[in-house]
Design a protein around this nucleic acid. Structure first.
Lengths: 212, 212
DNA sequence: GTCTATAGCAGGATAGAC
DNA sequence: GTCTATCCTGCTATAGAC
């Protein structure tokens, strides 16, 4: 690190910028990384281009050169976030263990309760109906629900969950428990509610799976 | 209705204003009603005083005469909303039927999935940490969680739910299912996800309650 | 590709007349 | 109590130099 460049990024001789621990080769990537953080922290509507510029160390020109505007940048950033999360999900749902254990592992994933879900937090903004933003968020959840439903169905076939349960409904419920847990943790400003909701879900599945 | 007064309110001879079907005796109440609607539709941060004035038919002066500002108006409106919701909850939790049926009735309450929860929708705004706003929202959920936990415990005593379950955790989970259902319905722009999550929760409780 | 300067508009609050 | 006029600030985007 040689010369300090703006408030938050460093310019290094190789022509790369550093924000926190991330390395990037252009202002474009710096803008995307900054947008990802701000989308998580503030959501789409409260994420101002000015804040993105300050956090990335880029100027107005870079933003409007690489992206058509705030919405385009946000869409790109959200695609990126989906990729990150799916790397985690794939590891869990792709693991070689029983379906019921995969469901438990999903519930047990580490989550930053106080920061909220990076996609779910957008649900109550007007932009959730935006033709560019909505498809990205909706696809994320649809894919996740599909994955969960497949595991529920597999667990039923393995005899670990009652076949009387509707797999899609149950998958949606598990998804809702996590999303609702985030909401309640934010309201209470405490990670416990999410922990409690997830713990109860696991207890529920265990109780039910030990049935005839 | 005699004379048209502004865009949305009517002045009637008795000195009362009418907005939609509501009757109010002053601009103060008109402002509160308008704020309640806008808080539901847009949340706190996106509720502009200008929009409240337009919806209530009041002028700037009335707002800042009756309230110290936007936040004060919102707090008053939210207290009002809590009162409305508790009128419904009290009817359900106070009914003379078994605890498990009260829980089912709670899950079965009609909900406007696409509009979201009037309190839960505020969870991801910065204002959820506001010293005036947070206590109101938090108290609403704390009281609801207490009510749910009492019913879970009563159902356990009645032998309708396994005593192995943690009552508080289970209550939080039921709460989360509803909140998460709202989130997912908003994302999918479809009332089904909330319906599915609630349906699965009921199926879960039924399955579990028919156990030894 | 990146920068600064600036336009245009909306949010939130205040001042002071009626 | 209620109104209108006005102020200041910050958001989003454009213009145009380097």
């Amino acid at each position: 690190m040689v010369a300090l460049c703006h408030a938050t990024s460093y310019f290094v001789p190789s022509g790369m910028y550093v924000i926190g621990e991330e390395k990037m080769t252009s202002k474009r990537e710096a803008l995307i990384e900054a947008a990802k953080e701000l989308l998580w922290e503030r959501g789409f509507e409260a994420m101002s281009p000015k804040a993105v510029l300050a956090a990335s160390g880029a100027g107005q020109g870079s933003l409007y050169h690489h992206f058509s505007g705030k919405r385009d940048l946000a869409a790109t950033a959200l695609e990126d976030v989906a990729g990150e999360l799916w790397a985690q999900f794939d590891a869990i749902f792709g693991a070689r263990r029983s379906a019921i254990k995969r469901l438990m592992a999903y519930l047990d994933m580490p989550r930053e309760a106080l920061r909220g879900c990076r996609f779910g937090r957008l649900a109550n903004e007007r932009s959730i109906a935006d033709p560019v933003i909505n498809p990205i968020v909706q696809k994320f959840f649809t894919d996740l629900e599909t994955r969960l439903a497949l595991s529920v169905r597999a667990a039923q076939k393995a005899g670990d969950l009652p076949s009387s349960l509707n797999a899609k409904d149950t998958a949606m419920m598990l998804n809702a428990i996590v999303q609702g847990g985030y909401v309640l943790s934010r309201v209470h400003q405490d990670p416990m509610p999410l922990k409690q909701a997830v713990r109860a879900a696991k207890a529920m599945l265990r109780t039910i799976s030990s049935m005839p």
